[in-house]
Design a protein around this nucleic acid. Sequence first.
DNA 1: TATATTTCCTATGAAAATCATAGTAGCATA
DNA 2: TATGCTACTATGATTTTCATAGGAAATATA
Lengths: 166, 166
Amino acid sequence: MNENNVTPQTLCPVARAETVVGDRWTVLILRELFMRSHRFEEIQAQTEATPQMIAARLKKLEADGLVERRSYNKRPLRYEYHLTEKGEAFYPVVLALRAWGETWFKSPEEGRAVHYTHRSCGKPAGLGPVCEGCGQTLRHDDLIVEPDPAYQAERQERWEAFKASR
Amino acid sequence: MNENNVTPQTLCPVARAETVVGDRWTVLILRELFMRSHRFEEIQAQTEATPQMIAARLKKLEADGLVERRSYNKRPLRYEYHLTEKGEAFYPVVLALRAWGETWFKSPEEGRAVHYTHRSCGKPAGLGPVCEGCGQTLRHDDLIVEPDPAYQAERQERWEAFKASR
DNA sequence: TATATTTCCTATGAAAATCATAGTAGCATA
DNA sequence: TATGCTACTATGATTTTCATAGGAAATATA
């Protein structure tokens, strides 16, 4: 994995961002955090990465300031992972990635994986970056997220397969 | 490198997108194409990747339909790389990445790497996704791109260093 | 004619990351 | 005592990446 460079080599913000998020597993972990999976096991099950991949990336994400670890249980000590403000600020990238993926990687008969409703106007938000209904810029905490039944089932199944394999 | 899966494993558009662009070099190559570097050597110089990295990724980007190779010279046969419509459509992701990078990876004394002017309203476009001046969604071909002198110098220097090393 | 130069890559071997698989630590519950 | 739960770590084979060098096919220059 790419160690974070202390002195930035370039002024380019895309290159700097990529030293942190230029990795498939990292982005999938961030997706899971936005999907409100906060536990190691949930993230592992839904990304289908090995535990080392998850562990290494969570550690780096924490070092890079996108993620913080919160203990939700002493004895035995257990942690959950949450996005920091910097991590939350990554949302527009995920949204843009989603829009691109929905547009260019789906056959017509496949529906959207997730349906968004814009809380402030009550209308479907569409693919962004601005709300289809009211034109406002979409923010993560202003969206009601509803996984499509098919996607929900897929996630459910992945979780069960994961559980069964222990 | 990740071979493209014929049957998608998931409905998640982010995961599907990441099988194509979930890689640092790939994103940097796309950035260069948006910066109007179309030649192998320019891309190599500005990304500072090895030629195999570039060659392999350009090949995959072509297979994935984001990039097309155009011969600009017979005898000797020479190619340039250009974005397809699918590749151009990736722009919002780059823009979001840039905004995040500019916001979270810069000290106050460092300026923006690139300045955008919105062609249709003539005002500075800001960090997007919508124009700071007029509120419209930013499109790549509607932006006048002006690298900051410092960033320009950095790129110039990289090119010269590359040339000198041959 | 001979020698550079330009451009786009390919070859090679060492170093690092990744993967599948298995296992550990600490505690709770039956 | 045994079984389960959760968050990881260990190991060894496989794959990818990196640094460095080189090649091929033509034109330009001496």
